[in-house]
Design a protein around this nucleic acid. Sequence first.
RNA 1: GGGCGUUUAGCUCAGUUGGUUAGAGCAGCUGGCUUACAACCAGCAGGUCGGGGGUUCGAGUCCCUCAGCGCCCACCA
Length: 882
Amino acid sequence: MDASPSAPAATRPGRAAPRAAAPAGPPRPALEAPTEPVVPDRPSLDGLEDTWAARWDADGLYRFDRSAERAHVYSVDTPPPTVSGSLHVGHVFSFTHTDTVARYRRMRGYAVFYPMGWDDNGLATERRVQNFFGVRCDPSVRADPDFAPPESPPKDPVPVSRPDFVQLCHRLTAEDERAFEATWRHLGLSVDWSLMYTTVSDEARRISQRGFLRLLAQGHTYLAEAPTQWDIDFQTAVSQAEMEDREISGAYHRLRFGRDGHEALEIETTRPELLPACVAVVAHPDDARYAPLFGTSVTTPLFSVRVPVLAHPLADPDKGSGVAMVCTFGDVTDVTWWRELQLPTRTLVGRNGRLHPVAWGDPGWESDDAAGARAAYGELEGRSVTQARKRIVELLAEAGALVGEPRTITHPVKFYERGERPLEIVSSRQWYVRTMPLRPRLLERGRELRWHPPHMVHRYESWVEGLNGDWNISRQRFFGVPFPVWYPVDGEGEVDYERPLVPVEARLPVDPSDDVPDGYRQDQRGIPGGFVGDPDVMDTWATSSLTPQIAGRWEDDPDLFGRVFPMDLRPQSHEIIRTWLFSTVVRSELEHGVLPWSDVAISGWVLDPDRKKMSKSKGNVVTPMALLEQHGTDAVRYWAACGRPGVDTAFDEAQMKVGRRLAIKVLNASKFALGRLAGAPIPDAGAVVAPLDLAMLSGLAAVVEDATSAFEAYDYARALERTETFFWSFCDDYLELVKTRAYEDSFAPGPVSARAALAVALSVQLRLLAPFVPFVTEEVWSWWHEGSIHRAPWPGVDELSPAQHQGDVAVLDMVASVLGAVRKAKADAQVSMRAPVATLSVLDSPERLALLRQAEPDLCDAGGVAELVLREGAPEVIVDLA
RNA sequence: GGGCGUUUAGCUCAGUUGGUUAGAGCAGCUGGCUUACAACCAGCAGGUCGGGGGUUCGAGUCCCUCAGCGCCCACCA
């Protein structure tokens, strides 16, 4: 509701009581007096984007006022788009939603902190750089001071050094970012470009590294050698949040395990190639079939390795034969069994996805037939997982250890979301953030957040509840934020991972592959008694989880940070709740002990007309700039703003055409209204006395209240819908009804009332529409105001006084319905709407006729009615055309 | 397997605590150059509100159940 202290909390019969006192907001901006209207002869939408975007920039219109106190600040944790190509229509959609909210808050008087960031850190960028230039990062290549990328991408990628590769990343992202910014300006996003940040900048790297060091100092992060989900193509570890299931085809292979003096034990597996890595077989503790075997051992075929038969509740009696073989590591269940049953480790698959050499017969690789195992493994070693699978099936069949034919199935397998081959689990050393102990707290925090729409909280909760391990933040990649850590090398040349060397915060950002830890010299790198730098970079989310801190310049500018953090709004799409939203909550909780924002607004996806998510791979992506130029920005924004919060919305050019019509209507209706106001001082709302005018303003007051409460609830779409509906009936009915009276060259109360009502109604409606169609409303506002509409106050019902106390909406409704009957009669008679009506007879109740009497002349003028007869009777309208 | 959302006119969608004959836009059809707007205006037609059951004086709205579609999560041998 209106926060202005001058706004009377008036209650009227039949209207809901004012809502509970709004939280202390900023003072309402003053509404400047209009100037003499100057209306173009032929108003047009063409070129408005360029004109006004340049003007807003020159005027610093959206500059954040950093002197504002926290209670008067509205801060937005804008999602930084990934710089790996181009923006798409989904960005336009969701960023428009946020922009309408930011514009609303600004008009409410808030100092809006609305930055833009570019996420140019990470694998997506590496991939784009590789393809764009035709290069491949090879850390073993030495940096070339005269390095230049190939003129055009060659067939075979050119290996380049890590520093040169990173330079190319910077170069390409900088180009992309310029194009992105141009698109956003054309879209009219009201961001403060002086707050722009990138996730690979020195500032972002400093904050990211500082955040890591704080986690380390407080024991929230640790280094561990452990089974790790590994992408064999990208050659990097992957966290749970970056994994997805894909249904692929596989096959059950039934294998025969030897038992001394007994019939063979049959087990089924989809990964027979991991048989050499088998460390146990398990069955369910309650499975009577296998209970006698618990505690005994069986022997693997081909490799003759004795493995124990163990009981574990995760074994499913209904799956396969009810016995599973445990390998290190075939899947995450193997990891669980390995950990909980304290099984030995026999790793097979290397980081390149091939089976590495194994010392059969040595400790850890004992076999009853080491020579046989060596021979069998010789057929597999060096092969890829799929090749090895094919070969071992042949070997098993030859050995008579394969029962029947493999049964083809389709089953879900874990993939890296960007990857092309199934993830393998390898043992590796990684940095982890302790999220598991935090889960109950994180669930509480999730419930404290205000979610828009509310049901999105379920996605967060199911994610947190389903976490199965701490957050792995190490990535074995090149273009990212390095870990600010070195390790001492002892006299034997062994790296001591237990005592990492860290820099003081004042040194950040550092690159440990280039910089030297305090107390060491560069020539001690990699030698006994010296040091080595941590070779990895952080997970992209380890940096992106700090966007509130980066945008708010945490520690670098404490005054600013104190005014914007915790932030008010996190806008984002639902697909990254488990990554960006979750990780941001984690970091804020660990570092600051608070939620990073009070509200989160989740936008839906843009679907193509076939109801599929729009994506590049389907080739159905329309570039935003082309769209904006074709339909006009306001039209595209209108389409976007019609998409309900959190609801997937069809890409619909027809809806953009509707938006364009609305924008044109705003021009034309304004031209009409303001044309009547030229040449004399514009009367204010106090001059509105005609019942029809008061009725219209009363209706508008209800729209203002509705639009305001909708925006407060982040339902921009409802605010637009209510405003738009009113605006069209305002044009179709009210403007037609008052046209004649407003044209009258007179200062009698009637004509003055009409002109005052037009001025007030236009002013209020333009401001209600400004967050949605910022260009056309600014254009029209400029015809009769000095300043920008986007710094004008959001309308309050007090502006429509005294109308809200005296108006009766029923007057306008009644008159409009009779006018509608007149129009229908003319349409039925196939005559012009201008055709005269000799006699218009209205039969109705005395009460309704009384409503009509209050606007008799307006009705007759609008309908071309010569004689109006009002009679009591059963409701009927008789139109007697001349 | 668990969960969330969704299903209203040919299409895209409103429908806020249950309350007259269920609304809008687009597309369609019929007319109209009307000094704000022909990039316009007026009018018409079009729906057993996914199926079934229940609560109620009254259900698109609340409850149960089934189905379709979409998504999220899951230990996937």
